[in-house]
Design a binder for these strands. Structure first.
Lengths: 322, 322
DNA sequence: TCCCCATATGCTCAAAATAAGTATAAGTGT
DNA sequence: ACACTTATACTTATTTTGAGCATATGGGGA
């Protein structure tokens, strides 16, 4: 009844990735979807839930998790369509974990998926994704307009504005879950349809082919929670180094941060900020991988947590005009 | 086996408070301690866990919860001494909720407790609490020095430095849980002893009478988690208004923020920041409660969430010297 | 070899945010 | 009228941020 699911994330080749289990049974449509690795929580053998998680992840995948953090406990009725039919409610405690790029080999039965294959609207590294203007904005506004009364119309429109930053509200990268939930409610992701919550007909929009890869049950929701959490976390805890190799160039570090944050960063300022925070120290070696001038290799300065109250990678929130 | 516990917080008379159930059975020592209100999670009657929580809180206490957020799921073996003896492990999903000052009447069997009666070391509104220098710093360092080998000594000392800000590390108000856990491990809070985890003798320090009111089981740990979360949250979400009456003066608002944050704020700058964020708007009325010049009454400007990506009460992190 | 290209790194400058005051306003109670 | 209290406005120096230009240092091809 109670199990533990793991969102195991990394960044390889400048691309943020997450570990998913490929469907073993491609016969039924629903189970053909990839899913999060999960395992049981066994109170008699595991002192804490986190220990239990580490144990079965190591057993199943061979991965040695570095940073692990409990995310959220998911127990809504509609998370598992099978349970609705009368079985016991399944409850899962979700965890996020980060692993090193180097240890990011592929465990059997699983595969690394690009985060932004699942959440294409979250990738702003090359500017605002056209998907938002082409599909999401019009469809979501349609959905808002299709609400029963004036009040719920206004509420839906406001939620959409805040979540997606319509009309100058501005994009807040951390609101990943709010955005996914809106798309879910509006029936724009494939999961909605499967769940059968939303009655088709009457202004019902259809899951759009460009809104990313659907996952098993509510697993994309769990991932949205995880991405939002990670984005918030890198700003005030040095978790980004959990995915970096022992030595790295500043540009590699920037790429990793950009990957998770889903936003481009100003190169010169990034290095200035990282240096100012005392997050890294030079190793003395250089890397000539890139073609141009060789970049200096740095390592994480562990001491930073003893010096700063909230060490993390500072990021622009966008300059406020007024 | 799975239940929901609620940390219900408010601020009354400038003092942050939390709702606890007083012990009904004062015969046994352990159960004489106050405890968090809790209720079962009933999957068949409640669609979501949050709904279930709201329902039984309303039933039990009559309180109408405003802001509710899931905190953490607690399932460690030692959270419930009874379960260790062989019973089923009890797991609880903790929630934080905020209620209005006005609705903060006392439900039967429960009482409002000052947060800082439970966490005296967290209240820096009148400067650094002497408790830290008098008791915590020496005792914690003793505990660190009593570790087995040199490495764990260093680790303990580092953890203490970071958590309590010894040696210029600086106090990070959000690390409430880390601090409580250190005190717990060092045997400085009464809960440690009850749990019987730490063997007495050999360098064992004793729970100190000044380290706050002990609660049932791991409930003070849950509260520490909640306080840390709230402190972080008020900076980037306008949750503080959940505890304010509909109209309030800026100084009342400041007092509420200071109460939760546990730190004093510069009055003139506070009002400037609040105004600059557009968090409030004047009601036109004034309040003559205070004796001096009457203060203007403000109300929360709901629109702020539509304008700013992360509206909240900005607070000084302390100017960085280097 | 020398020049071009690519990337890395250093530096400048203006705009905005912040910390910490000082000064003034507008009430109450004596 | 006066002292006292609290509220609010304004000033100033400093730090942080956003953005761009300039220079450094390698590789590869003419």
């Amino acid at each position: 009844m109670l199990d533990l699911s793991a969102v195991i994330a990394t960044v390889t080749l400048d691309e943020p990735r997450v570990l998913l289990v490929k469907a073993s049974d491609p016969s039924s449509e629903a189970s053909a979807r990839p899913r999060l690795p999960f395992g049981p929580f066994n109170p008699s053998s595991d002192r804490t839930m986190e220990e239990g998680l580490r144990r079965w992840v190591e057993n199943q995948t061979g991965l040695n998790l570095g940073f692990v953090e409990q995310l959220y406990t998911f127990g809504d009725r509609f998370r598992d369509p099978v349970a609705i039919a009368g079985g016991a409610r399944s409850i899962t405690v979700g965890y996020v974990a980060l692993v090193r790029q180097s240890s990011a080999r592929r465990p059997a039965g699983s595969d690394w998926f690009d985060w932004y294959r699942l959440f294409p609207w979250e990738d702003w590294r090359n500017g605002r994704p056209s998907l938002i203007e082409d599909v999401i904005q019009p469809e979501i506004l349609l959905w808002a307009a299709s609400a029963e009364d004036a009040k719920s119309k206004r509420l839906r429109r406001e939620r959409a504005e805040i979540a997606f930053g319509f009309n100058d509200v501005g994009w807040d990268a951390d609101r990943v879950l709010e955005r996914y939930e809106l798309l879910y409610e509006a029936g724009l992701v494939a999961e909605t349809v499967t769940d059968g919550r939303i009655k088709t007909g009457e202004g019902q929009t259809e899951a759009h082919p460009r809104t990313g890869l659907p996952l098993h049950q509510d697993h994309r929701r769990i991932l949205a929670t995880a991405l939002g959490r990670l984005r918030g976390k890198i700003r005030y805890r040095p978790v980004i180094f959990e995915v970096m190799p022992p030595a790295f160039t500043l540009f590699q570090l920037q790429r990793a941060v950009e990957g998770l944050a889903g936003a481009p960063l100003h190169k010169q300022n990034f290095r200035r900020l990282v240096a100012a925070e005392g997050l890294v120290e030079p190793t003395g070696r250089v890397s000539a991988e890139t073609g141009g001038r060789p970049a200096e290799l740095f390592r994480f300065r562990r001491d930073v947590v003893r010096e700063r109250p909230a060490p993390g990678v500072r990021m622009p929130r966008g300059r406020r005009t007024k």
